[in-house]
Structures are given as C-alpha cells and as structure tokens.
Design a protein around this nucleic acid. Structure first.
Length: 333
DNA sequence: AGATCAGGAGTTCAGAGAGG
DNA sequence: CCTCTCTGAACTCCTGATCT
C-alpha cells in the first residue's frame, strides 16, 4: 500500500520535531500532534512494530529533528502545535505543497525529492501555463499531430492484424484501446511501427514547443510558469525529503523572496529528439547580487501513462538541474 | 545511471436516472 | 423541467520496474 509509506514519512517527521526518540513517540502520541485520526495512528504504531519500515521511520524522524534545530527552522524550540494535513488535496492550482504545519506558521512538505516536478495534462501545461485546474477532453496527440497519429494508428492496427478496428483513431472505444495496447505488447515496437512512431514524436514535440512558446506572450507569463513548475508560491515553505542517497532539506523562497533576489532573463523551450515526444525547457536567472547567470533546465515528456493508445497522454515535467542549484531553493541551515 | 515504460490510488468530471 | 445523487470514466500524481 503506497499510501502507508507516505503516512509514515509525514507523521514520523512530525514526531521528530516533538519527541526525543522514536520509541517514546510511538508509545504515546504527543498532545501537540493534531489531525492524525486514531485509525491512522494505530496503523503507524503497527508499522513501527514491524521492521519493514524501520529505515523510513528513522530517516523521517531525523528530518523532523533537523528542522527543529535548524537556524532557518525552529532554532531548537519545541513546537506547540504540529498539524498533519492528511490525505486530502485542496483544490486549486497554486497550492503550497505542505503536509505539516507547525505553530500555524511553518509549512513543511515531506515529499520524496523527485526529479519529476509535476505531470499535468498537456493542454493545461502548454496552453494554459498551469493556470487553473480545468481538464481538457482532447487527446494531445490528435490535437498536435492528427495525421501522424492516424498514420501510426493505421500501422499499428495492421501490424496486430485488427482490420475490424475503426478507421479513425478517434473512434476507438475504451475496450478497443485496451485490446490494441495489449496486442502491441509492452516495450519495443514492431520494426514497421518505428518510423511512424518517430514521425508522430517529432511532430508532437515540435507543435508542443511552438504552442508553449506562443502561450508565454510576456516575460511575466514566463516567470509565472517557472514559478509554477518549481512550486514557488506566495509563502515560504520547507521540503524535508530524501534523495536516493541522502537527506535533502530545503527552504523554498516565496515569490516575494524570489523577486528580491533574482531576475528571470529568459525561459526558452525547444523540441528535443527522444524515444517519445519531448520538449526541453531552460531558464536563465540572474541573481541581483551577482553578475553571473544561473541556468535551470528540465524537460517535458508527452506520454501515454497507461500504455499505447490507452487514454490520453499526459505531460511529465522533469527538473534536470540538481535541486540545490535551483534559484530559490536553499539548503536548510 | 538515465531513459523509457508501467500501473496503483485518489480526486474530479460528466452523464444517467431518480425524485421533486 | 430542474436539481440531486450515484457511478463509471477520466485525469493527475506518484512511484516502481525494466531496458540500454
């Protein structure tokens, strides 16, 4: 159950801020910890009794302790109130990604620090620049490369021997999509499909980059997009996470802090050849206190998240620059 | 180690049918 | 005819697996 690990990580981080050691914390829930329902608390106690999650518990607890002693954090003070956000995700598009709130003020995200920044629908990213949370009823492949998409579909239906499927890719029913996906199989494509797939990728990449660039009419649009991708929002918050190898604890600037410290010089996007449609992005940022620019870069994959032809593609946004080198992300002191 | 592919889970949407 | 409720599909988020 993937949710269980998330719960452990978040609650154990909270315990690290409140308790001297994990064993005593689990023995009795601290009164300052709010919003953890009894069922979840019991599940966490049970999980702690097994050894399976020992490393996760220890690492998260450690993060909590580090936040408590950090100069940027609680400076050694014991919190009076630690609220757990719980599994609910608030609506809206500009939400601070916080899992814990300490003393009504400090917002803490316990996310594992992933290179994946977000994965919205392509329309929301490339046309609406992540503003708003409306969904799009459109298939981005059909939108950006209708001919190539259709050609790839015809080649695929032929390759798997399914002349009975609809002539138009847009008319596939969900069960038919599933059949086609399963008939094609995972991993490598049949040789005769590689050329049409590459043609589709190239056109989707090209059109996506062009659409994205056109949507960012003003420098202000570019700045806001960068902030949304990096999750720079109205308030400062903290990320207490782990890299594959080590702890990574960050203080993330608010938009106000960011404006004080940096200037966005450019944000460029370009199609990029790969095994699936990709668009690279690169921002050039100048610290106001320095003459030297900082580059932040990443890429977007436009991909079917549940197999070929099954459902609509999504846009998966990656950060290629290490977290600690991103303007506005500061290692917690 | 990075690139690519896969899939579970939670949330939201939208259409059908029920009830006023 | 309008509103409410239910339900399956759609969408997003996140993480894991596999290939090169």
């Amino acid at each position: 159950m993937p949710g269980e690990l998330t719960e452990i990580t978040e609650v154990a981080t909270a315990l690290g801020m409140l308790c001297p050691d994990l064993a005593s914390a689990v023995a009795r829930a601290p009164a300052e910890l709010h919003n953890v329902p009894g069922t979840i608390w019991n599940r966490i106690v049970d999980a702690h009794a097994q050894s399976k999650y020992a490393a996760s518990f220890a690492s998260a607890f450690d993060n909590g302790r580090a936040f408590r002693s950090a100069v940027d954090g609680l400076r050694g003070r014991r919190p009076r109130l630690v609220e757990w956000k719980g599994p609910h995700r608030p609506p809206g598009d500009d939400v601070i990604p916080a899992d814990l709130r300490i003393d009504h003020v400090y917002l803490v995200s316990c996310k594992y620090l992933s290179r994946v920044l977000l994965n919205p629908g392509p329309t929301r990213l490339f046309e609406r620049l992540l503003v708003g949370d409306e969904r799009s009823p459109e298939n981005w492949f059909a939108r950006t490369a209708p001919d190539e998409f259709q050609a790839f579909y015809v080649a695929a239906a032929t390759a798997v021997g399914r002349p009975d499927l609809p002539a138009d890719v847009g008319l596939l029913t969900r069960p038919q999509q599933r059949q086609l996906k399963e008939a094609l199989g995972a991993r490598s494509l049949p040789a005769e499909l590689r050329a049409p797939w590459q043609a589709l990728c190239a056109e989707v990449s090209r059109r996506s980059a062009a659409t994205w660039d056109a949507a960012m009419a003003s420098p202000r649009d570019r700045l806001r997009l960068l902030w949304r991708m990096l999750r720079i929002t109205t308030a400062t918050y903290f990320v207490l996470g782990t890299d594959a190898t080590a702890h990574l604890r960050l203080r993330v600037d608010s938009a106000w802090d960011w404006m004080q410290a940096y200037e966005l010089r450019s944000l460029e996007v370009a199609p990029r050849p790969a095994g699936q449609p990709e668009v690279a992005w690169q921002a050039v940022v100048r610290p106001r206190a320095s003459l030297f620019d900082i580059e932040v870069s990443g890429h977007v994959e436009i991909r079917w998240s549940h197999g070929r032809f099954f459902g609509f593609p999504e846009a998966k946004v990656y950060l290629d620059t290490p977290h600690v080198d991103v303007p506005g992300f500061h290692v917690l002191r």
